[in-house]
Design a protein around this nucleic acid. Structure first.
Lengths: 337, 337
DNA sequence: ACTTGCATTGCAAACGTTTTCTAAAGCCCC
DNA sequence: GGGGCTTTAGAAAACGTTTGCAATGCAAGT
């Protein structure tokens, strides 16, 4: 089955030229005449020459590959990001190598090292819940591998990031809920050390304060999964000071809320206000009105990949930048099905 | 910023041994004494030696990388598959390189060629809607790169596949709906040339025939996206012979159904029976009872990756096999939130 | 003492490509 | 018709690792 692959040298021999010429012809080097170039390309196609990218990358000392580090390729958000990272990368001649940290800083560091060993040209990273030190990412930068963080970004200064203004969006979202008449708001956030949690909680807090409502002790729930969100939210609905609206920081958190509310009698749950940060696919499906702050994973991935490519192609532009994407609050009914 | 990376040779020089010895020590070659091995490893760690995997892979003529070809890293199903592929691959020392065909056979072929150029050790593939010829995959096998297909598999004989018995599951699911008293069933399928569509439609048809119901002309809808499913399903609900149950072949198709039903007055839609093939995350969220045939993307990815690894490690076991995974029909209420 | 065998280490080749440097060939112009 | 220039092509080096084989040193066997 496995026959020896045709090499540049073999192709050259068959054509009666040197392998140098073949290489140059295939790479459109200007030194090669139109005639030979065509002849070489035709032969390469006819004989199914398969260039060994490994050898080329090794020789060139760059892999033409972008590494990705994310917590999980979960059902929410990250797939959209990955999808557009892949699209942008391939459109620009780069491959994509993915790794998942599983929310473990240790595995995140191991992944960073793995990508470094594989000499990826750049890295796109969304950090794990517990990651505070970013020594493992600093090592990448020191080795000349630029890192662009997206969504879940570290708070250290001087980094390249693609984010939304979660604080502002949460602030506005909270005011929106208040303007709708809701008063006992509960935010369902993620792990407290995550920047996205912190900033959105801060926006929530600010809006409540400004509206004279203040932030009670149990008005922020921290849940790392859908089921945890459901649990905490269900528990909140059993207390005496029942929430009249939930503001979830992700599709996943909102899913938990919806699951919890489904356990309650309709008359108790139907008037509850719901708002979440979302990629936009899920809210229309919940079977009840859910407003959302559109946070496009597609856009995040695209911009992060483009920013990384820009850093790769113009290494001189060294000033780290944080790209803040726009968000829009959308209310049902959502058109276009 | 970018300083020259420490090489095996440099490390050897610093230690006063040959680079051969360093290589062997780091790879736990038995010929190296315990003492030197330790000394080398300590030095490597202390000096942050970063082995150049590109060079090693090139030399070994294998990339320790699995390639993945899928239509889209969409919101449904495929992320789960990818997630476990990544997990299994890394647990076994393999990297993962992903590509999306975007439902285009041409891009699928280009991706196959790309992966071949990159000398991936094996490929996991789920084919595009229109793919009938699999010449581009045959080329991989001819070059010694084994291919394992999952979920959307070609129908040619002699291939390695991981699938579910969609026909049987659809047959049983259809009988289930009939036993619940539904009579005017409509199946929402995908592109008609996809094997998963064909087999599930076949099971649907068989069950209808066996129950003496027969398959009317407009009882199978073919939709390639959520919005198309919603459109066709909404149109079906406007006809005179309104369906009383929908059987969707994916989470995505069911999402379309749910969106369409949400447009109708509750009294018209609430009694409609709903069943779909699903990864299991979505059905609980729809805000109305939806039964599903559990089709675990996680399991599919895991088994496909394991099968591929088995082929890589035991190339002698050449007989192609099709692994058929079990499915379970689940009905609400779903426990565990 | 000389050989045999074993444990440990080193030398050198090889993987397939790109690229720098050099050389040959063709051409123009004096 | 030869000097200098341009165009084209080749020779050789380099990228960093792994590995077959040779070499060394030492202990044990004869």
């Amino acid at each position: 089955m496995k026959k020896k692959a045709l090499r540049l040298k073999d192709l050259a021999q068959l054509l009666g030229v040197s392998h140098t010429t073949v290489s140059r012809a295939l790479n459109n080097h200007p030194d090669i005449s139109e005639a030979t170039r065509e002849r070489v390309k035709q032969a390469a196609a006819a004989l199914h020459y398969t260039p060994n990218a490994m050898a080329a990358h090794f020789r060139e000392q760059r892999s033409k590959t972008l590494g990705v580090i994310m917590p999980f390729i979960s059902f929410y958000f990250f797939p959209s990001v990955l999808r557009s990272i892949e699209a942008v990368a391939h459109a620009n001649g780069y491959n994509v190598m993915i790794t998942q940290s599983g929310e473990s800083t240790e595995r995140e560091a191991a992944n960073a090292r793995l990508l470094l060993n594989n000499r990826v040209d750049g890295v796109l990273a969304s950090i794990a819940e517990n990651t505070l030190e970013i020594h493992h990412f600093a090592e990448l930068e020191e080795a000349g591998v630029p890192v662009v963080y997206f969504d879940r970004v570290p708070s250290q200064p001087g980094l390249n990031r693609v984010v939304i203004d979660g604080e502002k969006a949460a602030y506005q979202g909270t005011l929106h809920l208040i303007s709708k008449g809701f008063r006992r708001l509960v935010m369902v956030a993620g792990h407290p050390s995550l920047s996205i949690s912190r900033s959105r909680v801060e926006g929530f807090r600010a809006a409540l304060h400004e509206s004279g409502l203040g932030l009670g002790p149990s008005q922020v729930l921290h849940a790392s999964s859908r089921s945890e969100a459901a649990l905490l939210c269900g528990r909140a609905m059993l207390g005496q000071d029942k929430p009249d609206a939930f503001f979830a920081i992700s599709d996943e958190a909102m899913s938990g809320v919806v699951l919890a509310l489904a356990q309650l009698p309709p008359e108790q749950s139907q008037s509850i206000g719901l708002l979440c940060f979302s990629d936009g696919e899920l809210p229309a499906l919940f079977g009840r009105p859910v407003s959302y702050i559109h946070h496009s994973g597609q856009l995040v991935g695209q911009e992060a990949a483009l920013l990384l490519l820009r850093r790769l192609h113009h290494p001189s532009e060294l000033t780290p930048r944080t790209l803040v994407l726009e968000t829009v609050l959308r209310e049902p009914p959502f058109d276009g099905l």
